[in-house]
Amino acid sequence: MAKKTKDPGFGYSSAENVRGVINKDGSSNIIHINRKFKIDDLYTLFISVSWWKFFAFVFLGYTLLNVLFGIVYTLIGIDEITPSTGDTLKDFLNGFFFSAQTLTTVGYGGIAPQGITANIIAAFEAMIGLLSFSFITGLLYGRFSKPKASIRFSDNIIVRDFNGERALMFRLMNSRKTIMIEPEVSVTLAINEEEKETGKYKRSFFALKLEREKIMYLPTIWTIVHVINDKSPLYTYSNEELEKLNAGLYILIQYHEESFGQKVYQTTSYKFKQLVTNVKYAPSSGIDEEGYTILDHEKLSDVEKMD
């Protein structure tokens, strides 16, 4: 008889169309409301956003600062830094490009502040530029040096006959060339079912017992196996019922990463809509003529029919 586990933080309340709280890539799927933003959150924001968003923020901030100071130089009189052209747009562009030179401390020498007001503003802008680029440099270092796992999970989960019983399986591999040292995995099953008495949906959680939860090291691919025996929460479901089951898997894996010299973590999730039955995973590694092991990263999710 399968034993339920305590709520791992997802909540027992549910709905018919409930979404998983963890996305496939391990990111959170929680919508936060009434959350107060603090200045300390900026570091976490810029460290965690995708690269294209990070550089978009940098470009936008750089452009807005130059536009702001370009307007300031135009308003105090462009003659403070260079003779006026008589055209407001051209004067603004001169102020904009002078601002870019001051902010980056490039200083080509073609334009220079003349009056005391322009010198004060340029000195203040140079200070902002130094602080800004120091901040961005720190963020770049933080993004590159932040310990990260780089694990690929199969796109599917399968149920197949296994040693006279059935088993639930999925595969994972390290997308880097380093070897995963002492990888350890834990899997939580969440089943979403309607209560006949109330008509409301509730979630039940089970910690799945795995064939192996920890190994010494992983150079290639690891197939995670949960045997569906009489102690499994999936034992009473047929293969057809499993394919229609409103359930999901939440996976946490941790291991020692050689690149960073410390333990790293990665999470992911599966919905049972990704379940395929009566198939097995196709081989994804082999031996070449010289005796080297060849690992094909494109075959991680490949399956083939059972014999």
Results as ranks from 00 to 15, higher is better:
residue 231 K to S: 13
residue 253 I to L: 14
residue 255 Y to N: 05
residue 256 H to W: 13
residue 226 H to P: 06
residue 236 T to F: 08
residue 244 K to T: 11
residue 222 W to H: 05
residue 243 E to Y: 04
residue 223 T to H: 05
residue 238 S to I: 07
residue 221 I to Q: 02
residue 245 L to V: 12
residue 260 F to V: 15
residue 260 F to G: 10
residue 234 L to S: 02
residue 262 Q to H: 05
residue 221 I to K: 02
residue 245 L to Q: 01
residue 233 P to T: 05
residue 243 E to F: 03
residue 236 T to S: 15
residue 234 L to Y: 03
residue 237 Y to S: 04
residue 260 F to T: 14
residue 230 D to N: 12
residue 232 S to Y: 02
residue 262 Q to R: 14
residue 238 S to K: 00
residue 238 S to H: 00
residue 234 L to H: 03
residue 221 I to E: 01
residue 239 N to C: 04
residue 237 Y to W: 04
residue 259 S to T: 15
residue 225 V to F: 08
residue 253 I to P: 00
residue 224 I to W: 03
residue 251 I to P: 00
residue 254 Q to D: 11
residue 226 H to M: 09
residue 262 Q to C: 07
residue 250 Y to C: 08
residue 222 W to K: 08
residue 242 L to K: 01
residue 238 S to E: 03
residue 240 E to F: 05
residue 219 P to H: 13
residue 251 I to T: 08
residue 221 I to R: 04
residue 247 A to G: 07
residue 224 I to S: 00
residue 261 G to W: 08
residue 253 I to M: 11
residue 228 I to Y: 00
residue 226 H to G: 07
residue 220 T to R: 10
residue 227 V to C: 07
residue 223 T to V: 09
residue 252 L to N: 12
residue 244 K to P: 02
residue 230 D to Y: 12
residue 222 W to R: 05
residue 228 I to C: 01
residue 251 I to G: 01
residue 241 E to P: 02
residue 252 L to C: 03
residue 229 N to G: 09
residue 251 I to W: 02
residue 255 Y to T: 09
residue 238 S to G: 15
residue 243 E to M: 12
residue 234 L to N: 01
residue 241 E to H: 09
residue 247 A to M: 07
residue 233 P to N: 05
residue 234 L to V: 03
residue 251 I to L: 09
residue 257 E to Q: 13
residue 220 T to C: 06
residue 234 L to K: 06
residue 229 N to D: 13
residue 252 L to G: 08
residue 235 Y to R: 06
residue 219 P to Q: 14
residue 242 L to D: 00
residue 242 L to R: 02
residue 255 Y to L: 04
residue 263 K to I: 14
residue 256 H to C: 08
residue 230 D to H: 08
residue 253 I to Y: 01
residue 257 E to S: 15
residue 262 Q to E: 15
residue 255 Y to I: 10
residue 256 H to I: 11
